[in-house]
Amino acid sequence: MNELSGKEFKLSSAQVSSNVADEVVILNHDKGVYYGLGEVGATLWSALESGPKSFDELCAVVTAEYEVDRETCEADVAALLSELMHEKLVEADS
């Protein structure tokens, strides 16, 4: 368990993204800064684009697509979400 596990996540209103195949480029138009996401990040992003998701739902999306144990997956998803929230691209509701 970690501090993110009880929360729900959604894309912030400060972002707009371009999502093609396995890649995502995101713009934070409040800051004027661009971000790129790799394959796993893009998987997570696509899931969030279809609507708000809980931490468990996001982990399930990743484990369904990649061969990764639950513990590693949770750590990776938590790290990615923290970064996306720090850059104001994703918001958490508790």
């Binding site: 371009s18 890649e23 995502v24 480029v25 661009y34």
Partner: peptide
Amino acid sequence: FSPVEAPI
């Protein structure tokens, strides 16, 4: 050109 980079 990679379409994902087009906006940049």
